[in-house]
Design a binder for these strands. Structure first.
Length: 183
DNA sequence: CCGGCGATCCTCT
DNA sequence: GAGGATCGCCGGC
């Protein structure tokens, strides 16, 4: 029930992930952030998606269980995190592009040394680095065990949301599949 | 504040 | 063998 929206269309799920929390527990303490920017990537009908040309070793999580993490390495040095979300039998994931800190600011800073606070979480690679997530986390279950060391939590955003073109892609730029609070 | 550029390596063709 | 769902640094305005 609680995560039923992850089994709706990937674009809908991307919109509904705005405002949810990510909780990361480490030996040093707890980090909690609020998701403020997402993008939907679907399957064969989305030319900008990793899954556009079918299943491969890399994009395999996009074809699997919703609520799992899909992590990939980009430009040889940054990790990007996605939440797998799609209708049953379909394909897709939601790229987590940005967030704001709610708890554990010192831990987030420690993972991104020398970076001003305004640049801590305002990009997909930055977000993953601040939370200490890399490729070894690919496939993690974010919704199955509330005690796990990296999870999604409820807290939906109830305010207005703006849809815009996705960032950093060259195909399907006309689709408004990026979501941010309208604030 | 904004644009250009190099870094760096995995993935798929 | 090319290119990428990016980032940080640098220079200019």
């Amino acid at each position: 029930m609680e995560w039923a929206f992850l089994e709706e269309d990937t674009v809908k799920a991307a919109e509904q992930l705005i405002g949810r929390h990510l909780v990361r527990r480490t030996a040093q303490g707890v980090m909690r952030v609020r998701i403020t920017e997402t993008e939907a990537y679907r399957g064969g009908d989305d030319p900008a998606s990793h899954a556009h040309r079918g299943k491969t070793a890399r994009n395999e999580p996009m074809f699997g269980e919703v609520g799992r993490l899909y992590v990939y390495l980009i430009y040889g040095m940054h990790y990007c995190m996605n939440v797998v979300a799609h209708r049953p039998g379909e394909v897709g994931a939601v790229l987590l592009r940005a967030a704001e800190p709610l708890e554990g600011l010192e831990l987030l800073r420690a993972n991104r040394p020398g970076v001003p606070d305004r640049s801590l979480l305002n990009g997909p690679g930055k977000l993953a680095q601040a939370l200490g997530i890399d490729g070894s986390r690919n496939g993690d279950d974010l919704i199955g065990d509330p005690e796990a060391d990296f999870i999604l939590e409820r807290h939906a955003y109830t305010g207005p949301i703006r849809a815009t073109p996705r960032i950093g892609i060259t195909k399907a730029t006309e689709l408004l599949w990026r979501f941010i609070p309208a604030d």
